[in-house]
């Protein structure tokens, strides 16, 4: 009953699954596949170093997937995300950009759900179903781009602060700590207020306020990687800062960055919805948060028109939850001891 096991029984060793150890070694000399139980066939004699590296990469991807598959909630999240991605990508074919046009609206204002309009219409008579489908494009795009920005800043600062010690690291980590205690949303709101209303502003506001956790995690991992002997070997062979950081540290922190990315996306999507709801988004594009703001301004709340409010909110919640579930599954595959995401 009270075992020491975390979440799921994992047949796993402690090492990160995807960590491609010593990529340089793989190129220098054909190392016998020492830690690869899954590659049944030993490397063919004719395989060059490149092929060997590819084979290793493929094997670790297979191993990753096999462990990921054991997380049912992670699979659920993945399936939901695939569905949403499909809906967003095919939206120009299914609903078309006409849905957001106010002038050519097909229905009467604020209609209840019917066969023609499955989710009713908004105050201009536009089909809410179409708007929710169309809004998925902006919500997902902003969430993804903001996360890419945030993770890129975090990884850059984390790796450099871990690699260069001394005053540079101190200053960087001081800045990180300061951002870490700042109420993220308040800072993002302040940024969005002072800049022009556009999607770029929203992406920037979210991206530059959410990176500190990534920076901290990446720095810790960088310090761990840099204490290994093969880094010393690389330096002895004349590897410069850039070589060490990009060829040795980066591949080893990538798994962590990947897990972090999936976790940050859900908060980015929530942040986008929040900023749009507060009226700081681009008023000319349709997004889920913007729809909720429209609904509130059109008096859907006091009129009890729940069908206007429910679908965009559910969409936000399902996508955010799916990314969280995926992120937790990835994290627990990469670090089986963890059990829970922080």
């Amino acid at each position: 009953m009270t075992t020491t096991d975390p979440d799921e029984p994992m047949p796993a060793p402690d090492e990160p699954v995807m960590a491609r150890d010593e990529p340089e070694m793989a190129r220098d000399e054909p190392v016998p596949a020492r830690d690869e139980p899954l590659t049944a066939s030993p490397a063919p004699a004719k395989a060059g170093p490149g092929a060997l590296a590819r084979q290793r990469r493929r094997a670790s991807a297979v191993r990753f997937w096999q462990r990921y598959r054991t997380h049912r909630s992670g699979l659920f999240g993945l399936a939901a995300l695939a569905l949403f991605a499909l809906v967003a990508l095919t939206a120009p074919l299914t609903v078309g950009s006409d849905v957001q046009s106010v002038t050519g609206a097909p229905g009467r204002p604020m209609e209840s759900p019917s066969l023609e309009f499955p989710l009713g219409t908004d105050q201009f008579g536009r089909s809410l179903f179409g708007l929710v489908v169309w809004g998925s494009r902006v919500s997902l795009l902003v969430g993804l781009l903001a996360t890419v920005l945030s993770v890129a800043i975090g990884a850059l600062i984390g790796i450099t602060a871990g690699h260069f010690r001394g005053w540079f690291a101190t200053v960087m980590m001081r800045i990180t700590d300061w951002f870490l205690v700042m109420p993220t949303l308040v800072l993002a709101i302040a940024l969005a207020t002072v800049m022009s209303r556009s999607l770029g502003t929203i992406i920037l506001a979210i991206g530059v306020t959410t990176w500190p956790t990534t920076a901290r995690l990446v720095r810790a991992q960088t310090l761990a990687v840099e204490s290994r002997p093969y880094i010393e070997r690389a330096k002895a062979l004349g590897g410069g800062h850039r070589h060490v950081m990009s060829r040795h540290v980066l591949p080893n922190v990538m798994p962590l960055v990947l897990a972090q990315t999936t976790l940050i996306i859900s908060s980015s999507i929530l942040a986008e919805a929040t900023l749009a709801f507060l009226g700081l988004g681009d008023p000319t594009v349709v997004s889920w948060g913007g729809l909720l703001q429209d609904a509130r301004e059109a008096g859907a709340v006091s009129a009890g028109k729940w069908w206007y409010l429910v679908p965009p909110g559910i969409a936000i919640a399902v996508v955010a939850l799916s990314f969280t579930l995926c992120g937790r599954a990835v994290e627990s595959v990469l670090n089986p001891k963890l059990g829970v995401a922080r």
């Binding site: 859900s266 929530l270 919805a273 929040t274 709801f277 948060g289 909720l292 609904a295 509130r296 709340v301 006091s302 009129a303 009890g304 729940w306 409010l309 429910v310 965009p312 909110g313 936000i316 919640a317 399902v318 955010a320 939850l321 969280t324 579930l325």
Partner: peptide
């Protein structure tokens, strides 16, 4: 996890519709 993924303002609006407006 589910409640954690819900936008707070949306939950508030829903609660108003259900429990205040009726």
């Amino acid at each position: 996890l589910t409640l954690y993924s819900i936008p707070p303002f949306w939950l508030g609006l829903l609660l108003i519709i259900v429990f205040s407006v009726g």
